[in-house]
Amino acid sequence: MQETHTIVVPDVSAEVRQQLLAFVLQLADTSLILAHRLSEWCGHGPILEQDLAMANISLDLLGEARSYYQYAAELEGRGRTEDDLAYLRSAVEYRNPLLVEQPNGDFAHTIVRQFLYDAFHYHLLLQLQAGPDQQLAAIAEKSVKEAAYHVKWSAEWIIRLGDGTDESRRRVEAAITALWRYSGELTTPSATEQALQQAGFVPDYAAIQQQIDEHVTRVFAEATLPVPQGVFMQKGGKTGRHSEHLGYLLAELQYLQRTYPGLTW
């Protein structure tokens, strides 16, 4: 690495620093896992332009993940690098919510997963960029511009699929039924997030949930899709209890470094 990244670590107690590390890793894992899922579409997209769109969004998320991992490495301060954190942690150490590790399924599943995540992501970044942690604010300031394009793209596809043909509607409804249950975890604070909310580092998720609800309701109305009500919400990923899918994903993502440790270009 020939560039230096100027990373400012906030002046906080050792305990809060550990909590911040866990939260930043959660953000990093979330962006990385969704980026990997989207990259699985590369060369398989329904049409070339959408293949490119998913690769572009994947790349944005990968860049965002790198920024978080670099910050996490600094917060941890034990000499581990961004690569160590991404490639050498096992599934139970990953902290991404369950939604982003769900398989791509058909294009409708990918779009619904993306839209549910994008709506959360965009509104979260808006808050983080105004937050007290300088480094998180800088990453959020950078990424929110990209996240705006993502949520516009996935919202337009929700509308095309929902208000499209019988086939597209059947598929998007099936995807909503399958994935809605994972949307609640995004704004259900873990113990770590609760502690950081008290310390002012993590925004109020109830307020973000309200913004997401308004956003989703507006887009679903345009798509002529009903917003599911009273669905039991799954959770676990943010505390390391994942679905079986994550292990397979990491087996592919980490294959090279696990097989040839320390390999570089």
Partner: peptide, 28 residues
């Protein structure tokens, strides 16, 4: 930035200078 559909700027074609152009994909 979040406006959906049809809010794209009017662009001039860099080849023939026509402004009768359309967005194919937000991602290139």
């Amino acid at each position: 930035v979040l406006n959906l559909f049809g809010q794209e700027p009017v662009l001039r074609c860099p080849h023939c200078q026509s402004t009768n152009t359309r967005l194919v994909s937000q991602f290139g």
